[in-house]
Design a protein around this nucleic acid. Structure first.
Lengths: 107, 107
DNA sequence: TATTATTATCGTAATATTGCGATATATAAT
DNA sequence: ATTATATATCGCAATATTACGATAATAATA
C-alpha cells in the first residue's frame, strides 16, 4: 500500500525517525554543516556550494526548518540561516540516548 | 527528476545520510530497540511485537542488516538477531561527531 | 525423506521523495 | 513606485519507499 503506519509506533520511535529522516539526505547533512561553518549563511551561497538547483535547496532548507533545526533572519537583502541551538541540543540528546540505550541493552 | 545526486556529496556526508536513512523509519527504530532488549530476538516475535506483516518486517530487517547494524545466527530453528556492537559503535561515533561538530561551529 | 515452522524473496499497488524549470513573492536600493 | 536580487512555491516527471499476499527457501524434527 505504501503508506507508513506511524500510528502503531511509540512517540519516541516516531521522533527518532523524524530526526533521522531529515538527516537521511546528504544534501541536508551538507547544508547543516555548511551553515554551521559560516556565521549566518546565505541561501544563494548554498546553491553554489552544494550544486543543486535553487528550488531544490529551498525545499531541503524547508524540511530542515520544519524540524526547527535552523532559523532564518533577513540581513540586508539576504536570508541568514543559523543553527537553532536549543533544538539542536534536544535532538542531539534524543539521538544520543537512543544509540546509548540500544548499545547498553545489547546482549 | 527524482534521483538523488549522491556523487556530488562528500563521503562523510553520504555516510551520515545512509545511517540516518536506516533510522528514518519508526519500524526500524522499534526493531533495533526490541532486539537490544532481548538476548537474541526471533523474527516471528517482531511480527507480533511491531504489528507489520512478516514480509514487511523481513524487508526492514534487511535494510538494517545491509548497514551491518545487526547480525543473525540460527539457534534451533529460529533466527536470532543481535546488535553488531562494532558497527554500532562506529556509526554512533560518526553520528555523534556530526552533531557535535555542527554544534561546535555554530555562530 | 516428509512434515512443520520460520524467514526470505517476488510481484504489485499506493504513496513519498528528489529534482528542476517556471513563476511568484519578498526585500533593498534607486 | 520601479527595479534588481534573493528566496519560496507550483507543477511535473522520474525514482524510491512502504506494505502486503503469495510463494519459495531454509532448518529442525518426526
Amino acid at each position: 500500500m505504501g503508506v507508513s503506519k506511524t500510528h502503531i509506533f511509540s512517540e519516541k520511535h516516531n521522533q527518532v525517525a523524524s530526526v533521522a529522516k531529515v538527516l537521511s539526505h546528504p544534501a541536508r547533512v551538507a547544508i547543516l554543516e555548511y551553515i554551521s561553518r559560516q556565521e549566518g549563511c546565505i541561501c544563494n551561497d548554498l546553491v553554489d556550494e552544494i550544486g543543486l538547483a535553487q528550488a531544490t535547496i529551498s525545499q531541503h532548507l524547508n524540511e530542515i526548518k520544519k524540524l526547527g533545526l535552523i532559523k532564518g533572519t533577513f540581513e540586508g537583502k539576504n536570508l541568514c540561516y543559523c543553527i537553532n541551538q536549543d533544538t539542536w541540543d534536544t535532538l542531539q540528546n534524543l539521538f544520543g540516548e537512543f544509540f546509548q540505550n540500544v548499545k547498553f541493552n545489547c546482549c
